[in-house]
């Protein structure tokens, strides 16, 4: 579903991403681990088409992001570190707007309310201004957008950082459920524990290189941490 072939990003003075080849099929949760500046966010921005690649191809559902960004984005949902919404509008109004933007004005308001309930946003909160929301609640609206849009691929950029453990756990369960229904998930994170818990595969990035890919089923928590730190040590 998400495919990178020789995907590269160079700036004038440095290389943010060395040729990356990666494929995240439906139902898989691929976690990108790495220090700040390792190239995780660059990878996600390239899939979103927010920044043009210097080489290679990023494809979403077989659509070249660079060539047809709008049609690639039909299949995508994006959840940044903090889902930022229109503060003066309610959660419901925000969801309606983004669903419309996603090209799904046919999804009824009743259905959107159902989705908000489903992702765990308390019923009374849906009509409150987003300005009063906690971070966890905003992340849930982010998921709701993905659900309402019926996205096939989900790009997450450190979505759980700053969440308390219970909220982070709740969020991870939602991601797992989406993956369970056939969504391809690519998630950048610092959180080794969550990567091991939710991920099906883990990629370790360093200085713009994807240095190692592991299947989480094959490795314990302690081992993952050791492997990661070994890479970081230089």
């Amino acid at each position: 579903m998400l495919d990178a072939r020789g995907l590269t990003k160079r700036y004038d003075d440095h290389v943010a991403l060395h040729p990356l080849t990666l494929s995240v099929p439906r139902g898989e949760v691929f976690c990108l681990l790495g220090a700040n500046g390792a190239g995780k966010t660059t990878t996600i921005n390239l899939f979103l088409g927010f920044t043009p690649p210097s080489g290679g191809v990023a494809e979403v559902a077989g659509v070249d992001v660079q060539r047809a960004p709008l049609s690639a984005r039909q299949h995508l949902a994006y959840i940044p570190e903090t889902v930022m919404l229109y503060r003066t509008l309610s959660g419901m109004e925000n969801l309606r707007y983004f669903t419309d933007l996603a090209g799904r004005p046919d999804v009824t308001d009743a259905r959107l309310r159902e989705i908000l309930l489903d992702v765990g946003l308390p019923g009374e909160a849906a009509d409150r201004r987003v300005g009063t929301y906690s971070k966890g609640m905003r992340q849930k609206v982010g998921i709701a957008i993905a659900v309402a849009k019926d996205a096939e691929a989900l790009l997450l950029d450190e979505p759980t950082s700053g969440l308390d453990p219970q909220a982070a756990n709740e969020f991870s369960r939602l991601i797992e459920r989406l993956a369970g229904r056939g969504v391809a998930v690519l998630m950048a994170t610092h959180d080794l524990f969550r990567a091991k818990e939710s991920g099906t595969r883990v990629g370790i990035m360093k200085h713009g290189h994807l240095v190692q890919t592991l299947a989480t089923a094959d490795i314990g928590h302690a081992d993952l941490e050791r492997v990661y730190l070994d890479h970081m040590r230089d």
Partner: peptide
């Protein structure tokens, strides 16, 4: 306020918005 990224991750051209 960070909404631009979310808007632009949707299949809609900025010019239309």
């Amino acid at each position: 306020q960070g909404t631009l990224a979310l808007v632009m991750s949707q299949p809609v051209s900025v010019t239309r918005v």
